[in-house]
Design a protein around this nucleic acid. Structure first.
Lengths: 176, 176
DNA sequence: TGCAAGCATTTTAAGCTTGAAATATTTTTG
DNA sequence: CAAAAATATTTCAAGCTTAAAATGCTTGCA
């Protein structure tokens, strides 16, 4: 029943590979990564609400649309944002309501809806985006000169590692 | 609002100060960090659902309780998990329903509710936790030997940077 | 003692999120 | 060409999340 971590010989200096079955270091890394992104997200949410009376999902959606000159389909946006299709549908509904986003059927395929920012949406997004960029810079201001590129590189490796693991898991499920 | 950061003397010894108004690198870093944590979260959610028919919020809550021998209050859990009190209330309700968590008023203060895992909850959590640890190790398996501690260190610095920025913002709001 | 202030938790209202089922359209194929 | 498969989006039910208001309890202090 009880064998709390505190009572195991917990030698953090030992490499994970030397402790078969023990992956506590990776777990600690994940928790720290999660803490960082949660803290940033919460703070950005708070500021978007206080300063612009809007939400992070709406801001993220507008950010995607702003990058595209010709508009994007629901599917493209949902893939980029890594959220479900249905999610895009509901968030877009709110933005259309507010006159920030335009939604119209594609000319050649009536299944497809093309989304784009309205003039008003573009204007409002530009204002928010500038503040947002300042907030992010402020949140990362404590990183030294070499830290930023180093972290960028390590997160790039991490991203590839994650993608590889997910692909492996998918391939495994395929074999059934 | 009156004095946007861009117009203040930005003397923070960082690279950012040498490029007034341009913080694209920090933004890119944030997006990459967010991508990593979103991908991991999605995958863990998916596996928890498929393999154990449970959700990430429930797993996280149980993980907190498992660490404490004597039980935790709603407030403690909400602080650790960085979610609202109301959130803990609803997630706990589901877990109590399933007989995984026990909830009872504290003996000396009837405002306080003490939460703890039931025997069944503890048993089930142990099984899930072991798999969870494997999943995480797998997701980070692509990182080289030196990468893990390096990333750990950089994320530590990042965490402090974020906490500092949030504290500064809070202090600023205080002055009103 | 009595009551104001503070605290812990729950409730509420609104919005986000998901996976799966349903709908509508296009493409493939027999 | 027509049926079937594939694709894009929406709807649905369930659950998560939040901030703010409400509830119920404790504590400090006059």
């Amino acid at each position: 029943m009880e064998t709390p971590d505190a009572f195991r010989p917990l030698d953090r200096e030992t490499k994970a590979s030397e402790r078969p079955g023990d992956h506590k270091d990776e777990l600690r890394l994940w928790l720290r990564l999660l803490t960082c992104s949660t803290m940033i997200e919460r703070e950005i949410r708070r500021r978007l609400r206080e300063e612009f009376r809007t939400t992070l999902p709406r801001f993220d959606l507008m950010a995607q649309l702003e990058k595209s000159a010709t508009g994007m389909t629901v599917g493209e946006v949902s893939q980029r944002l890594m959220v479900s299709n249905g999610n895009v549908t509901t968030v877009v509904a709110g933005l259309v309501e507010e006159g920030l986003v335009d939604k119209r059927p594609a000319p050649h395929d009536r299944r497809v809806q093309v989304l784009s920012l309205t003039a008003s949406g573009r204007r409002q997004f530009r204002i928010m985006a500038e503040r947002h960029e300042e907030w992010i810079a402020d949140l990362f201001a404590g990183l030294g000169g070499a830290d930023l590129p180093a972290l960028m590189r390590l997160l790039g490796t991490t991203k590839q590692s994650i993608q590889g693991a997910i692909r492996r898991a998918g391939a495994e499920a395929e074999e059934a």
